[in-house]
Design a protein around this nucleic acid. Structure first.
Length: 643
RNA sequence: GCCCAUGUAGCUCAGGGGUAGAGCACUCCCUUGGUAAGGGAGAGGUCAGCGGUUCAAUUCCGCUCAUGGGCUCCA
């Protein structure tokens, strides 16, 4: 006699067990059609699941987040079914839901082609139209193993072999296709249809590069046609923000074959770079850092002592000279310890904060390179804080505040926080790890930040916080980092004298806000779609004359603005004003001053923005005041007429 | 590094076994024009590199390099 309580508090009683679908049908035919699954007492289940006793039930449709998740998962199965029908020798593996869609990994004797993808998508649509029922069944583990072994599904069999023998497994069957799956799924393939196969890729079985390379097909799936269209449109728009595209359009930088993964900065790009660097320089001095600079090429013995040669030797560029082996530095930390080690340090000096815009080279795998986001030569806004254990919490807190202030100035408000904790291979005592993991976690909690733990992902020398930003299509890039290190100072002989006159080994905090200039500027470009805020814009003001008559006036104006420290430039070409405006707009120059006879006569100028807005009129002093204000506030107080 | 795709003028791209084409940009000339493209003429390419097949390769095949999408990696 189950009594079902619905989310609105209403109750329905039945004199026998009912399925989720039955209840939906009982409520109304519309809901019956829309019901994909149910949440019974907090557990997501199939619509066919039978409810035998009193329960809380909410019915899941495509409008629910869970419903969309089911659609994506079931679409992955639909794809596997289509693939098996078209290419019976394919072996299926796994097919999870991901952001915006799903993928499924297959093993097949030949690579899939784009034509295959079209055929698969077509077959999927046909299968969806047939509204094939999707049925759940259960089998003891050994029987499930026999079932898939009989189908020669080696990968599925391997998965099942790893499951304890006493477990019961669920299978989902749709027509001629059965997959091992925890479920739940939509009731039939007719609920699916708003999907698109996006791309082909290789992927290692079980994510291990020692295993076979499988073929992964990515797809996207949505509750309705409108959402699918909106998603595809969003992707298209996002691609216009790609830093590689904008970098070319705005002539910011280039890369070329002779120096793979290393950036050639052009004048405009280098201007942005310099603005970022000068800003960071100023900010870190305020935060009590001392800037240093250390060698690019260092004898291999230092990397051996630091442990890097052993662990990361393959990634280092080696240089030989006069029978000595050197490495181009892949990181700055060992060099910073050398600076710390000069002279005898007292506990009174701690914390010592050293910062360097440190150029690093790492011979990254060729396949890992990506525009200027992942490169082989890059410059970190690196810094190391030598401190006592007691100082870790306050230093961590100060760093997080610093990072937030900086990110906000650059226009980033959405930061992804992750805490990577102790890996299996590590140095240091468990107490050290306990303390430093707690210090970092507390620092995040103290700021009320929403963070995720990445267990086992910490460095061998200590835990770390990663501060990541998203690029235009949602890929996550680690930028900032804060790492506790209780290994390297000891390995490299760092010491200070404590209050008792005893020698102690300091703790070292590795930290970066931007991560690398290359990556950070790449993301900055995508964030602003190339429209850099005034304080970062390579060309801030363009002065345009209507005819030759105003040339002198324009040049004087240009000089005044240059004298005030602005990046201003007049465009006196014998071209029509429309063309000059068009070109300056395409270059994303924030402000344009059009100078004709009227302006010369009145001494007042109107300002056109790159978004085609008119502000003003200003006299020169008011303009300079306004521009200065906008720069000083990192764009928070933009140029406007002040009465 | 692995899987797949791509590489043609400065840029964006079309073409295709008989040594190449468009638009924009560039150079020159005309035009002095008030808020996103004025007009005309000209120049510009070892079709990524190396090898093979062929009477003939930019086109077909192989290798290399680079780039793009993923996987792995990211101290």
């Amino acid at each position: 006699m189950p009594s079902i309580t619905l989310p609105d508090g209403s109750q329905r009683s039945y004199d026998q067990a009912v399925s989720v679908a039955d209840v939906a049908a009982d409520i109304g035919p519309g809901l019956a059609k829309a019901a994909l699954a149910g949440v019974v007492d907090g557990t997501l289940v199939d619509a066919s699941t039978s409810i035998t006793s009193d329960a809380q039930l909410s019915i899941i449709t495509a409008r629910d987040e869970e419903g969309l998740h089911l659609i994506r998962h079931s679409t992955a199965h639909l794809m596997a079914q289509a693939v098996k029908q078209l290419y019976p020798d394919v072996q299926v593996t796994i097919g999870p839901v991901i952001e915006d869609g799903f993928y499924y990994d297959f093993a097949y004797e030949r690579p899939f082609t784009p034509e295959d993808l079209e055929a698969i998508e077509k077959r999927m649509s046909e299968l969806a139209k047939q509204a094939i029922p999707i049925n759940r069944s259960e089998l003891p583990r050994d029987e499930a193993l026999a079932f898939f072994a009989n189908l020669s599904e080696d990968y599925k069999s391997e998965l099942i072999r790893d499951i304890p023998a006493e477990e019961v497994l669920s299978l989902y069957e749709q027509g001629d296709f059965t997959d091992l799956c925890r479920g739940p799924h939509v009731p039939d393939t007719g609920r699916l249809g708003h999907f698109k196969l996006m791309k082909l890729a290789g992927a290692y079985w079980r994510g291990d590069s020692d295993n076979a390379m499988l073929q992964r097909i990515y797809g996207t799936a949505w509750a309705n046609k409108k959402d699918l269209k909106a998603y595809l449109h969003r992707l298209e728009e996002a691609e216009k923000r790609d830093h590689r595209k904008i970098g070319k359009q705005l002539d910011l930088f280039h890369l070329q074959e002779e120096a793979p993964g290393m950036v050639f900065w052009h004048p405009a790009g280098w201007s942005i770079y310099q603005s970022v660097q000068q800003y960071m320089r100023k900010r870190q001095i305020e935060q009590g850092y001392k800037e240093i600079n250390t060698p690019q090429i260092v004898d291999m013995s230092l990397w051996e002592r630091s442990g890097h040669a052993d662990k990361f030797g393959d990634d280092m560029f080696a240089v030989n000279s006069e029978d000595r082996k050197f490495a181009i530095k892949p990181m700055n930390c060992p060099c910073h310890v050398q600076v710390f080690n000069q002279g005898l340090r007292s506990y009174r000096e701690l914390p010592i904060r050293l910062a360097e815009f440190g150029s690093c080279h790492r011979n990254e795998l060729s396949g890992a390179l990506h525009g200027i986001m992942r490169v082989r030569g890059f410059v970190q806004d690196d810094g190391h804080i030598f401190c006592t254990e007691e100082q870790i919490p306050s230093e961590s807190a100060a760093f997080i505040d610093f990072l937030h202030a900086v990110y906000e100035d650059f226009g980033f408000t959405e930061v992804i926080y992750r805490l990577s904790t102790r890996p299996e291979n590590r140095v240091g005592s468990d107490e050290d790890w306990d303390k430093s993991e707690k210090a970092l976690a507390d620092a995040l909690d103290a700021k009320n930040l929403d963070w995720k733990e990445l267990p086992g992902e910490g460095a061998f020398y200590g835990p770390k916080i990663e501060f990541s930003l998203k690029d235009c299509i949602g890929r996550v890039w680690q930028c900032g980092t804060l790492q506790v290190d209780f290994s390297m100072p000891g390995r490299l002989g760092a010491e200070y004298v404590d209050a008792n006159g005893d020698r102690q080994v300091p703790i070292m905090l590795h930290r970066a806000l931007l991560g690398s200039f290359e990556r950070f500027i790449g993301i900055l470009i995508e964030q602003h779609e190339g429209k850099m805020p005034l304080w970062l814009a390579p060309n801030q003001i363009r002065i345009l004359n209507i005819t030759d008559k105003q040339s002198d006036f324009c040049q004087k104006m240009e000089k005044s603005l240059l004298d005030q420290g602005f990046r201003a430039q007049s465009d006196l070409r014998n071209e029509k004003i429309g063309l000059k405006i068009r070109e300056a707009t395409l270059e994303r120059v924030p402000y344009m001053l059009v100078i004709g006879d009227k302006e010369i006569e009145s001494g007042m100028v109107s300002v056109r923005t790159r978004d085609a807005k008119e502000i003003g009129p200003f006299d020169l002093d008011a303009l300079i005041t306004g521009l200065n204000n906008e720069v000083a506030t990192c764009g928070r107080d933009p140029l406007k007429v002040i009465n």
